[in-house]
Write a protein that binds this DNA or RNA. Structure first.
Lengths: 141, 141
DNA sequence: CTTTATGCAAAGCCTTTGCAGGGTA
DNA sequence: TACCCTGCAAAGGCTTTGCATAAAG
């Protein structure tokens, strides 16, 4: 819902095109809907929203597109507890998530300290962190 | 696979009984198999192992038992990326997980610093952390 | 014009549930 | 005995896939 982020979407599409991916009407619509959402929607919700601007888009295409976009690094797949996958564009810098257990709302945050500690811990065990997931399931105090 | 952890299992069963849960042959077997596993098995793997000591146990009962044990706080449900839920007994103190992306192995670790930072971050946003999930998807360096 | 994407419907996981019979406290 | 639990099989969510058609480059 961040209004005219057109240039951002255009950039993503250019990158995808350069990466050999065809930009179809459906893919463009799905990507745009996701870029304009800030609530980490699930596939079926994304399908519903996309249909408002293009009623022909099928759920299968939504799933296929999401997988493709993820493979190209343009979006992230989030798998919270209970329920299916949810998605976000990968435009903002890396962050983690707080999940409000009462409302289901998702809040983004970032901690350099935690990032650093994670890498240190993995290194001590002989590993490199490829990616990680930190979710805080919380209630308002 | 930690050998004779009988007293631990007995303790858990006592607690469950005291909590109003009936200890059946099936539940006892499932709990024991899980307590003796250190590889965070999924439901179907648990079913396979449980059947070795009691071939009558059905998969439905495995699922129902796991949910019940989780509700009673005796086990934890882990939901890693891709694939279904995996489980561990809740006897050891809280810890997080490193997932070896090449072998699928799961390594436990604990960081007081990270725990503290998480609580601080949530507090700043007006939240209390009920529980959290920290997973490091790693490769051997 | 070649190759890739789409829609539809069917199938695939993993997990839950209704029901009648069986076991626990 | 009263109630809870179990097995079986069917159904449920979410996601993927086979196929013929349509569209992109």
């Amino acid at each position: 819902m961040n209004g005219p982020a057109h240039q951002q979407i255009d950039e993503m599409e250019q990158a995808l095109r350069a990466d050999g991916m065809r930009i179809t009407r459906q893919r463009s619509a799905i990507l745009r809907v996701l870029a304009e959402s800030d609530d980490h929607p699930a596939a079926d919700e994304l399908h519903r929203r996309t249909r408002e601007m293009d009623p022909t888009v099928s759920l299968a295409t939504v799933y296929r597109t999401l997988s493709a976009l993820e493979a190209h690094g343009v979006i992230h797949r989030l798998t919270f507890e209970g329920g299916g996958a949810r998605f976000e564009t990968a435009d903002s810098p890396h962050h983690d998530h707080i999940i409000d257990m009462d409302t289901g709302a998702v809040i983004e945050f970032r901690s350099e300290k935690i990032e650093r500690l994670q890498a240190e811990i993995a290194a001590e065990l002989g590993y490199d962190v490829v990616h990680h997931k930190l979710e805080l399931y919380c209630r308002k105090r």
